[in-house]
Design a protein around this nucleic acid. Sequence first.
DNA 1: CGCCATATTGCAATCGTTTGTATGAAAGGC
DNA 2: GCCTTTCATACAAACGATTGCAATATGGCG
Lengths: 318, 318
Amino acid sequence: MNTATVSRALADSPLVKTDTKARIQALAQAHGFRPNQMARRLRAQRTGVIGVVVPLGHEKRQHLSDPFFMTMLGHLADALTENGYDIMLSRVIPDTADWLEAIIGSGMLDGVLLIGQSDQFEAIERAAAHYRPLVAWGSHWSGQRHCSVGTDNFAGGWLAGERLTAAGARRIAFLGEVRTPEIGQRHAGLCAALQAQGLPAPLQFDVHLASDVMEREISAHIAQAGEDIDGVFAASDVIAMTALRVLADRGKVVPDQVRVVGYDDIPLAAQTVPRLTTVRQDIATGAKAMVDALFARIAGEDAASVQMIPVLVRRDTA
Amino acid sequence: MNTATVSRALADSPLVKTDTKARIQALAQAHGFRPNQMARRLRAQRTGVIGVVVPLGHEKRQHLSDPFFMTMLGHLADALTENGYDIMLSRVIPDTADWLEAIIGSGMLDGVLLIGQSDQFEAIERAAAHYRPLVAWGSHWSGQRHCSVGTDNFAGGWLAGERLTAAGARRIAFLGEVRTPEIGQRHAGLCAALQAQGLPAPLQFDVHLASDVMEREISAHIAQAGEDIDGVFAASDVIAMTALRVLADRGKVVPDQVRVVGYDDIPLAAQTVPRLTTVRQDIATGAKAMVDALFARIAGEDAASVQMIPVLVRRDTA
DNA sequence: CGCCATATTGCAATCGTTTGTATGAAAGGC
DNA sequence: GCCTTTCATACAAACGATTGCAATATGGCG
């Protein structure tokens, strides 16, 4: 009864006699013995762990709290757990140039999923050049080397612009930082839609995602923009919900005086008063696409990027 | 230049001559060599990984999406990352009796944090009997063996009851499942507060946390309760926000006709229209307490359970 | 009873590090 | 010039599993 036999018995190998196997399994059960996964995985050269990484390049104060990220994380967790993988969660502030290489090279992971590209496009491209099992949620740029899954943010911004103008808005504010590719494209889509209608370019205001400063910022922006504004396109639903709150404080009636469109369609977006009109990213489908692409790449196949079409969900704010 | 010297050089050991060290480090840099963490951790018998586990006993459909969990997870991630630990995230549906033992016995973890006890009190007690570095968020029962950090849910329920009655409510509905200890205690606190005022016991309605059914359920409950209801205590802020929405749909004015109190004080609670009155759990402090207790236990000390005092945050719904 | 085929079990190498100890080389004192 | 002390590097044993291959037990058959 040495380690080899025990190992085989617990793995239910046919090489071990049936009653020895039973005896060993009973003993293991009784003593609560479980094989050390660290050793097993070292030997197998396969860790069964997928890294789920949230890069916070521009938003050092953000606490993983955005409901969009979280819903995404929930779906990813479902899909990965179902396939027998564990999840290593990293909330990374990319202060060194090789943060992604450090994660990849640790030998702890069979694959990496990035939730959002932040402002780290270059770093991701660099890593993807020599590391295959890597899939990022976010924008797609023609010619990029890494595999990305996301919605067409430009189209989403365009949809929002169309709805706002159709609802009668003429002077529109965009709430969100345009430095990150995803949100920058939403902004660009909005600009294009307005231009197509012969309307002036939107005002643009930076908004930080940290909840304690967001309301103050939005409040200041809207005060500054003053009476001009009759439409708001928020870069995320959380921003839109806060904007709704600020507008209510200032006595503005939504959607009669100001129209509001959000982005993401998080579950709570349907529960605001009034209900939020927003551009929907299908998170469940997106998560599944990411996991599928990752598994294909782990298996050595060559999964291509996916760009999904966003849909406008028309409710009561525009 | 064998493995031993390389290992020491990369660890910046003083046993290696300075220029050899420099040469090795340069070479490692050039070839992008990084020590395999699996092997390192196996050897060190210390994984540097903390398991963050969300048991979903009663809520199989929940997708880790509750903002309270997520905010908590964000703070935990901050604190653990700061101390050099990695995070292994598990969303567990406890279908077998030894789910927690399986996690603990894997040899992959230096400690375990449970976010919520769900209905798994017994399983947690059993595991805590022989495994020290385990801390759970949730209720505290006198005589329990496992280390828990949480707020006094009974006191929180009492506070909500006090506020609702002070605001004029007489016939109160509780929205939430009372099977899990935490929410059960909130319900008990509410009942006690009402009884102290000589008021009848509240109505109680089960609500599932899955977003797609929640609105329908709450809508049905409120329709069923009919005109009787002039106060609502929701087991979480997300439930409260949905209740606000449902009440608006039915033309009920909050807080004049119906008073509403939530629980948690998630960031978005301050952004609803009208702003939500709620019982605050200080998530940041709670997360820090959990991590402190865990580190103490990892170090072999004996950290006691912590029960924090909830605070009523009075806004505009009650 | 002996031999061979087959069913079980044990040996030992391996995964990639870390670290105690031994060995070798350079340097310093007499 | 030789012996001792120090410094730098190499050797080898862990960590705890898995797995190819060798060794032994078992059984059937002549």
